[in-house]
Design a protein around this nucleic acid. Structure first.
Lengths: 149, 149
DNA sequence: GTTGAAATTGACATCAATGTGAAGTTCTAG
DNA sequence: CTAGAACTTCACATTGATGTCAATTTCAAC
């Protein structure tokens, strides 16, 4: 399988696949002419790499984890990395959940705004929902101000 | 309150606060000499902005949502944005949850590796856990290859 | 007033993955 | 054998929030 096929099968660009190889994430065989040659199993590997990327792991971390898939041997550093990233992701999930709930509250209030409630009521409700500012941005300069020369 | 105080109170750098103003997220009054002047309410506002940033909203999106806090008036575009970001965050949570679970499985298997099970067993288990490649990176060039000149 | 701390703007750097385009090479179908 | 599609490497651009350095100005306290 060549790079174009793998790109299509796994849903990433050829550019990304070259980058993955450069980073040592998805190594490739080479034809006599220098073209990359992949096999069926790489489709899953690329998808896994993608999953980790989208979870915010930097390539450095993925590089550290991936050899386990190939060798089945886990070093202490590798286990540590697994733990660290797991925890980091969990923290991120918690944060996202909080943000999601805040937005959901605002959405509800905004719907009220479209319905009966007054702007003033909504503003107060929104403030409460967000535990946030009173009277910010009343008549302030929201643009970059004149230079103080 | 001046920028240094607000930075300390809200836990963001002064650099970021200047950026927030530049983006129209947290406008500030100015003293005669041009220094930024904040009030108590801005602490919560900055924290909320930070929450949205950490949830992956670009400033453009935050700019669109924030006026609701100040006016209590929600435009259609604003409600749409709230919905979109809510859904995007939900999708991200799902993705992160998947990644977290995969890492947790790998961690379990890696622990087995430290304990009794053989590398071969672990390799197979890891592959299965990840739904990923068999025999990738056997004897491939994982470095950037020689130029094909 | 004077001084030192803290503010100001501006420019450039960073990270990380990916886009993009050029210039050249290899593969494959006819 | 040849045309053209697909590949190769290299290099620079992008995005967005933030770090950092530098030269200058303002504020607060004495």
């Amino acid at each position: 399988m060549r790079i174009g096929d793998l790109a299509e099968r796994s849903g990433v660009s050829t550019r990304s696949l070259r980058y993955y190889e450069e980073q040592g994430l998805v190594p490739a065989f080479r034809t006599a002419g220098g073209h990359r040659e992949y096999d069926e199993s790489d489709v899953g590997r690329v998808r896994f790499v993608q999953l980790l990327f989208s979870a915010g792991l930097p390539s450095r971390a993925i590089v550290q984890i991936l050899p386990f898939l190939d060798t089945g041997i886990a070093t202490a550093a590798m286990r540590q990395r697994l733990d660290d990233e797991h925890d980091r992701i969990q923290r991120q999930i918690d944060e996202l959940t909080l943000a999601r709930d805040r937005l959901a509250e605002l959405r509800t209030i905004a719907a009220d705004s479209a319905g009966g409630r007054s702007a003033q009521e909504c503003r107060l409700a929104a403030e409460a929902a967000v535990t946030c500012s009173r009277r910010s941005a009343d008549r302030r300069t929201s643009e970059t101000p004149v230079s103080a020369s």
